[in-house]
């Protein structure tokens, strides 16, 4: 464990807490894409199957359980909570997620470390996470309402993987023979997907104004 990876995990956890607080405090999920939340639930389920058969550390296990529980809590709020589910703009959140899931799964079958069920699913989760934010970014473009908390959520979600990029560079230089091409390439793509959002987020922050996305 190094400081970059710990910072990345804490940023990831914080982003999820911010989203949960937004939904709980405002009793609204306006501007939040349910599809992205469901894709993340799929990412966590397919990535954390090793919870059942391998113990890495208490930290690792606790964080995985927290990520799984919070992901399903958010989905529950957006689907079942009587007040919150009315604020979900279903007709705007129409990204065809199958166009993300199928290619990622096929790619995981073709490019992986080991042709086993858990390894293919783990690889699938790495590829899927790189594109899971797309429905959320598309929704923002459509609804134009980037409320502060949702903007902070997306910013931190993008930042966590950028911190992981630094962690991978650090591990490459400090751990002999450390290689993770699949994760490195996928994590780089994932961070690049956020660059456009980062640009407008930082611009709004510098001009101290509400974030607005171009037409």
């Amino acid at each position: 464990m190094n400081i970059f990876r710990l910072a990345g995990d804490m940023t990831h956890l914080l982003s999820i807490i911010v989203l949960l607080l937004k939904i709980q405090a405002t009793k609204s999920c306006a501007g939040v894409s349910l599809k992205t939340q469901e894709l993340y639930a799929v990412v966590f389920v397919t990535r954390y199957l090793d919870l059942f058969y391998s113990f890495i550390s208490l930290y690792n296990t606790v964080m995985k359980i927290i990520f799984l529980l919070t992901a399903f809590t958010i989905i529950w709020y957006m689907r079942k909570h009587k007040v919150v589910c009315q604020t979900y703009d279903k007709e705007q959140d129409t990204f065809r997620v199958l166009f993300l899931i199928v290619p990622c799964f096929v790619l995981a079958l073709l490019v992986n470390h080991e042709m086993s069920v858990t390894e293919v699913l783990w690889t699938f989760s790495i590829y899927l996470e790189a594109v899971a934010i797309l429905p959320q970014l598309v929704l923002l473009q459509r609804t134009k309402n980037v409320d502060n908390l949702t903007g902070n959520y997306i910013f931190m979600l993008g930042s966590y993987r950028a911190l992981y990029l630094v962690n991978w560079v650090y591990r490459y230089f400090t751990e002999l023979g450390y290689r993770q091409w699949i994760v490195w390439v996928s994590g780089t793509v994932q961070t690049c997907v956020y660059l456009d959002f980062f640009y407008y987020y930082v611009q709004a922050w510098r001009n101290n104004e509400r974030m607005k996305l171009p037409g």
Partner: peptide, 10 residues
């Protein structure tokens, strides 16, 4: 190459 038990990251 890293195999499954190497997945020490979240």
């Amino acid at each position: 190459t890293s195999t499954s038990e190497d997945h020490d990251e979240l």
